[in-house]
């Protein structure tokens, strides 16, 4: 125990640098995936065959390729075509795009769960498609989407560690570097695990809060 505390004092400051990158990647890809996911979901429910077809195809392609391969593609392959990103940018874009597929499915499920009578009521007061979405469907779908959204946030936090494969020195990679330099595997990876847990705790509480709130009539 004594040894662990001494190790903690030594390693935590270095690991916290990794935490910063972990948070940056998580928040960045959360924003990207949310916006993209909304676009796919809207295309999917637009009622326009071409748009929903494009969206469905894209979602299936994204879902069918491992995140790690998508990251490699963006970081190592795109430069061959003259498009290059820093490791952090590639991580945010890769995770954001990969997760946009899951976000889109969550959003679509929430939108389709809205009572058809709501849409008819909106049409009856003369609203067009976009106004119906903005004023009637999305505000209600938003609440229904919150609990799954919280779960996606937790998964993204943990999956941000995949950015380590393209050299982003986030929490997991920092841990691995320290561990291989000091051989203090137990201390280091226990600290890393605790830090992920501490980071996800507020998210877990948020999900529970959302679920309670949407459970209310």
């Amino acid at each position: 125990m004594q040894g662990f505390l001494a190790d903690a004092r030594e390693f935590v400051p270095i690991l916290l640098q990794g935490v910063q990158l972990t948070i940056l990647i998580t928040v960045g890809s959360l924003v990207v995936s949310t916006l993209l996911g909304l676009v796919w979901a809207m295309m999917r429910v637009s009622g326009v065959g071409l748009l929903s077809g494009i969206s469905a195809t894209f979602i299936n392609v994204i879902r069918g390729i491992p995140i790690i391969v998508q990251l490699f593609y963006i970081y190592f392959v795109l430069p061959d075509f003259g498009v290059s990103f820093t490791a952090v940018q590639a991580g945010i874009i890769g995770l954001g795009v990969a997760y946009s597929a899951y976000q889109a499915e969550n959003f679509r499920a929430a939108i389709e769960a809205i009572d058809k009578g709501q849409i008819e009521a909106a049409q009856t007061i003369g609203m067009g498609w976009w106004l119906t979405m903005r004023r009637v469907v999305l505000p209600q779908a938003f609440r229904a989407a919150l609990p799954p959204y919280g779960n996606v946030m937790i998964m993204m936090l943990k999956d941000s560690s995949q950015a380590s494969t393209i050299t982003v020195a986030e929490l997991a990679l920092q841990g691995k570097l320290i561990a291989s330099a000091t051989f203090k595997n137990t201390s280091v990876f226990t600290l890393v695990a605790l830090m992920y847990l501490v980071l996800s705790l507020p998210l877990i509480l948020a999900v529970r809060h959302f679920e309670k709130r949407t459970g209310r009539p």
């Binding site: 008819e120 009856t124 209600q140």
Partner: peptide
């Protein structure tokens, strides 16, 4: 205009907001 069997009020808005939704955003 139309009135439905199942009312179809917007549950996320107050009574007044339900009434003024169309006048403000459509008209």
């Amino acid at each position: 205009s139309m009135v439905f069997q199942r009312f179809n009020l917007f549950p996320h808005r107050t009574a007044l907001e339900n009434v003024i939704e169309g006048p403000i955003f459509v008209k």
